[in-house]
Design a binder for these strands. Structure first.
Lengths: 199, 199
DNA sequence: CGACTTCTTGACTAGGCGTTCAAGAAGTCG
DNA sequence: CGACTTCTTGAACGCCTAGTCAAGAAGTCG
């Protein structure tokens, strides 16, 4: 029976969220433990006690990121007609208004950033990233299948192929937007792709 | 008048190319000067003498990367019909056979990787990356304009929007492929997008 | 209260990092 | 040859890094 000791003074979940934002904007390598200590107002020892080493801390943040995103994806795509919802999802990276981004600039997708920086060197990172991509395509494939059946989306291509195209599209948009976004141009590009899906 | 001193013993261009490959596969942060010294067989001091510090060295490699890519792009798209050539360009990241990749695995696009790791922290990196994206869309836009005029590509969307969509697509494919590529699925996704461009 | 457990704090360690530099080698030029 | 310039080599420097740890604080439970 676990005798409980001194209770943790900081909110672990909230600290992870804040660390996520820092990792998201600066990347893994460029974020030092000292940066985290300063930004989170939690001492080094406590961080190590709660999250293990830096790598585990980061990977945990990526997992949380994906978890939140996946939930958003599932609820957003559970609708008909599908294409407006899809447009919402795809253009999300350049619509800074909502969600987690503090800085006011697009920071790309944390999964994508991880892919660039840690994959394929780090096998655990590769696992997380691969899982996320897989989940994305599965969820979008299901939605497209329904939309094809409803006659909203063209059946000229398999929904798997369409979903994967959308994965590439959203990852590309997320990445490129990090370098500064011309929102109008981005929307036009997304709409061009979506037009190709229309029945 | 520049009195010439002791001549450089290593080939600067070739050394830069080899450094490019290392940076490409490991990323900026994960590649140490010592790694470079070991892999290039050039002593630290000589590297600093020839290329300046690590950051300049890296940025120079990114510039070279883009220069080579742009040349390839220009010659490949100067043709009609356009779509087969476009397909060649877009699927390049997963066709490991040719070009620079040694490791035998897709390593993404160095410009994209730089976007994830250094942008927007580093303004010079941001400049290079922005320039590359701009050149890509300009070149592809021109090609699409011609193909629209020839009746090969649909005029339902502006060529600028189509080009930008293709930029997102190729960047997304490059990135995602780093995590392991299902070549057939990737090709199907690309073809789905290209079908949407057909007149 | 006193035994026990866990968390906090911040100084500390060891190592790796990017970068510098002095001494010598290898050229050119007068 | 001797003056001059540039490149090479590798040791050395200082800094910053991730990670540890011992001492004390803050709880729970018998």
């Amino acid at each position: 029976m676990a005798r409980t000791g001194r209770p943790r003074e900081f909110d672990k979940e909230q600290t992870l969220e804040r660390a996520l934002k820092l990792f998201w904007s600066r990347g893994y390598g460029a974020t030092s433990i000292q940066d985290l200590v300063d930004a989170l107002a939690v001492e080094r020892g406590s961080l190590y006690g709660a999250f293990g080493d830096k790598r585990r801390f980061y990977l945990e943040a990526v997992r949380l990121y994906w978890e939140v995103y996946e939930r958003h994806l599932l609820t957003a795509l559970d609708t008909s007609p599908l294409l407006p919802a899809l447009r919402e999802i795809l253009t999300h990276p350049v619509r800074l208004d909502e969600l987690i981004s503090d800085a006011g600039v697009p920071q790309g997708c944390l999964v994508g950033n991880t892919t660039a920086e840690l994959v394929p060197q780090d096998s655990e990172a590769t696992e997380i990233v691969t899982h996320s991509y897989r989940r994305f395509t599965d969820i979008v494939t299901d939605a497209l299948r329904r939309a094809q059946a409803a006659g909203e989306v063209t059946g000229r291509a398999h929904p798997e192929a369409q979903a994967r195209m959308l994965l590439y599209l959203v990852q590309g948009l997320s990445l490129v937007s990090r370098a500064g976004s011309d929102t109008a141009a981005a929307l036009a590009a997304i709409d061009t792709a979506l037009d190709g899906l229309r029945a």
